[in-house]
Amino acid sequence: MNWKQAFTSSIGKKLVMALTGVFLILFLIVHCYVNALVFLEWFGPLGRGYKAYEGAAHFLGSNPLTRIAEIGLLAGIILHIVQGLMLFFDNKTKRPVDYNVHPGNKSSKWYSRSMGLLGTLILLFLVLHLYHFWVPNRYQQLVTGHEKDLYLLMELTFKDLWVVIVYILGCISLAYHLLHGFWSAFQTLGLSTKKYTGLLRCVGTVYSIVIPLIFIAMPLSFYLGLLPDAETARAATQTLAH
């Protein structure tokens, strides 16, 4: 038994899904935390959220370690997507003649059976999301050496109602993907023992609801004008500094 075989058996493929899935879950915590700093606008003087968010974003953006982590993240996502789609299509071939009457929701949850579909929805959202933020920011950084004002970029991006709707749908897909995926990853890794199943289910459910909700709050708050515009917030940071 070599490593290649170990990761290409039916359990091995799932191990790849679980390891990359947990990696993505951890990444989302950092991503969510940094972006949620904009909400400090609601808890303190004007400009506080802007400053904290821009500070954290530029600290990460200008850090060479982030570039390395980004490569790891990209590799992880690609591995997760490629293996996920292969798993999905491969499993589809295992019942060549289908049933006439389907069990439906009698014995399993719809989202547990729809991980491929939910993942694909996340993927579509992800392409749009990278196009909105990551691509223009890295491009400008490459050309001018300076990053974009990401708070302003959020404000401008979320002026469109359809963008806001797509982001909300993307986050809902993520929520259902994780409602199954979080616990599933620990089951695949052999860690969801009798003693810990309840705890993992509970933490997984909280995570799957809270993280997407915080993400949804961003486009929604900008669209509804619940956060100050970038210009006002930036101007206010001048007085904050003194």
Binding site: S9, S10, I11, S107, S108, M115, H180, T188
Partner: peptide
Amino acid sequence: VEQHDKEGFGACTNTMACEAE
């Protein structure tokens, strides 16, 4: 596990339908 895969069974995605049935 190797024989399971060779026989043409699919990979588990933890839907738990098996346990219910």
